[in-house]
């Protein structure tokens, strides 16, 4: 009874969140089981049609595209970001805080601007092409826009700070005496990194991967602007279904699919982090 009284002030907060997150998510789930009439209006009739359509090869391909994009984004940000994080921990404190500021600063730069920057660089009349033509390296402008790779570059660029911060925290927390012990026992720098540092920073890697994976599923404006809609990803599909196709039940079913994918990643992450006795969430 005392506990109940102690927790009473928290009730409005719980109501607020459940009203704005819980209820909408429930509505999505319900809507994903409803059908549409010939005019596209929602009819309250239970159907599994929307979920059946998800497993249509065309739509499964979209899921696969998004999954591949998210995994590759995670891998690229890890490969490029890990050394950045690792090297940053080795800097002197003053330099280090400056470098960390440089890593975080892009968060404050509009994500649209950062995507647009790549159009300026990679476009047909973009900076890279005009530079290459002026230097006579190529005669015709290279076709760098509207490819899968363009979207991948943009997505990795957008999300790499998350990966770096997650890995940095993990490397920074590392027990330095273990590394020193390894050196004292005659292990080389590489060997120490592979046998001590890397395994001990796996929770940070898993955390960074999660932080990169989740948003990359939904940032439709990146694939829209850089990929030109050539390869269709989940975010674009859901967006198009709602804004142009007016097929909300199907969009709802895809959203549920996306959330399931996220839950799966979080589940795996929790497993990895719990094994190592720490967690991001």
């Amino acid at each position: 009874m005392k506990k109940l009284k102690q927790n009473a002030p928290a009730i409005p907060i719980l109501i607020w969140i459940s009203l704005l997150v819980g209820m909408p998510l429930m509505f999505v789930v319900v809507l994903s089981f409803l059908s549409r009439d010939s005019l596209g209006n929602i009819v309250f009739r239970f159907t599994l049609e929307n979920y059946k359509r998800i497993f249509d090869p065309v739509y499964l391909r979209v899921f696969l595209n998004s999954f591949i994009l998210a995994v590759l984004t995670g891998l690229i940000t890890l490969l490029i970001g890990y050394p950045v994080a690792y090297f940053t921990t080795k800097l002197q404190p003053k330099k280090r805080s400056f470098v960390i500021m440089l890593i975080i600063l892009p968060f404050w730069i509009s994500s649209l601007l950062r995507t647009y920057g790549w159009i300026i660089l990679l476009g047909k009349t973009g900076l890279i092409n005009s530079l290459l033509m002026q230097l006579n390296i190529v005669k015709e402008p290279l076709n760098m826009m509207y490819r899968f790779g363009t979207t991948l570059v943009g997505m990795a660029y957008m999300l790499i700070p998350f990966m770096i911060i997650a890995v940095y925290n993990s490397v920074d927390k590392l027990d330095k005496s273990l590394v020193e012990a390894s050196y004292d026992l005659g292990a080389s720098r590489w060997k120490t990194f592979l046998n001590i540092t890397l395994p001990l920073t796996i929770p940070g890697i898993a955390g960074g991967f999660t932080l990169v994976f989740i948003p990359s599923l939904g940032m439709f404006f990146v694939s829209d602007l850089l990929g030109g809609g050539r390869t269709i990803f989940l975010g674009n599909l859901i967006n198009t279904l709602v804004t142009r196709g007016r097929n909300r039940p199907l969009a709802a079913a895809f959203s549920v699919g996306m959330i399931v994918l996220v839950l799966l990643v979080l589940f795996i992450y929790n497993r990895v982090a719990k094994d190592k006795g720490e967690g991001l969430f």
């Binding site: 969140i17 909408p24 509505f27 989740i214 939904g218 959203s255 969430f281």
Partner: peptide
Amino acid sequence: KMKKAINGIMLLPLLVPEVALGISLLIF
């Protein structure tokens, strides 16, 4: 226990991909 619950619940809006959150709010 309640504090832990609040901490978890606070992260919820950040964990759902924005498109899914946007669509669900639109429908709601």
